[in-house]
Amino acid sequence: MYLVATTVPPSGESEIMDKPPVRIVLAKIGLDGHDRGIKVVARGLRDAGFHVIYAGLWQTPESVVRTVADEDADWLGLSILSGAHMTLVPRVLHLLRQAGLEHVGVIVGGIIPESDVPKLLELGVARVFGPGTPIPEIVEFLRGRTPAPSAS
């Protein structure tokens, strides 16, 4: 946790105060109890000035999409370490589109085999962050791509 706080470069305060905060929902879907990583990311993004809505463990694709809608989020971050990403992520993307939320960017983190990454990107995921990703890399990516790009 300490490392996370110190590795995020402090941003100019004026920038933070001028722009409306970026809202990101972080969630774990499916039967996957490994929430260490997503909590570290949540903390890191918080320290970088994001408004992080932590939806927690054992979410369904339906509940995540409802959360994104009601929270008016710009981004959705999914953490999956269970191996079910090729089932769950397409379902989330489908439901987002169905709900008219294609403007919400989706990022995925966790244990994703390299061969699956291009498939996820093709489906509409904006980026896949593997283990060991430095938090500033995620921050820079999100800052550079907000307002959220089309997920499709």
Binding site: S11, A42, R43, D47, H51, V52, I53, Y54, G56, T60
Partner: peptide
């Protein structure tokens, strides 16, 4: 919300039932 960075970790809703 942090007075220093403007960031926030909003962790209330995960304790509430999700009724999508």
């Amino acid at each position: 919300q942090s007075p220093l960075t403007g960031g926030a970790l909003l962790g209330d809703r995960f304790r509430m039932p999700s009724r999508p």
